[in-house]
């Protein structure tokens, strides 16, 4: 394209945009962001509390499972055979059911983090 034409086009675009108001953040932005950040802090606090409760649950249920195992006769007790199985199932299954949402969040969050760091667009 000749320089003259390039300049004309440059002027035409400038004219077209000259009347279009430049965008700027609204005066409410600060307040909206403050509210959003407060929500985020609350969410983080809840997640932290939930994590602590889960950790405590794991520790407690582990101790209970071990103590039950120790009190049971090692062999020959047909009646008590189902109990360790039940305890182990409860110890593994209940927390998994409780944290399944966190697991999904973790997977999604990792994918998002990977994308933000790799710069894939």
């Amino acid at each position: 394209m000749p320089d003259g034409q390039d300049e004309l086009m440059d002027r035409a675009i400038r004219d077209a945009f000259a009347a279009t108001a430049r965008p700027s953040l609204s005066p409410y932005f600060k307040r909206r962001l403050r509210v959003a950040l407060a929500d985020e802090k609350r969410r983080q606090r809840t997640a932290k509390t939930r994590m602590r409760i889960m950790q405590a649950y794991w520790v407690l249920s582990g101790l209970v499972a071990i103590s039950i195992m120790l009190t049971l006769p090692r062999s020959g007790s047909q009646g008590g055979a189902w109990l360790p199985l039940l305890v182990v199932t409860a110890v593994v299954a209940v927390p998994l059911m409780l944290v399944r949402v966190d697991l999904v969040d973790l997977i999604l969050g990792s994918a998002e983090k990977l994308r933000d760091h790799s710069g894939v667009e």
Binding site: T20, P23, L25, R32, L33, A36, E40, D116
Partner: peptide
């Protein structure tokens, strides 16, 4: 905001502002 607005184009300034808010919440996180 300028970056978001330029990607979304004129007429979408409110959307761009939402993007800025999302970005800073994400950065905070």
């Amino acid at each position: 905001f300028r970056l978001a607005a330029s990607m979304l184009g004129p007429g979408n300034e409110a959307e761009a502002e939402d993007v800025v808010q999302e970005v800073f919440v994400l950065v905070y996180r």
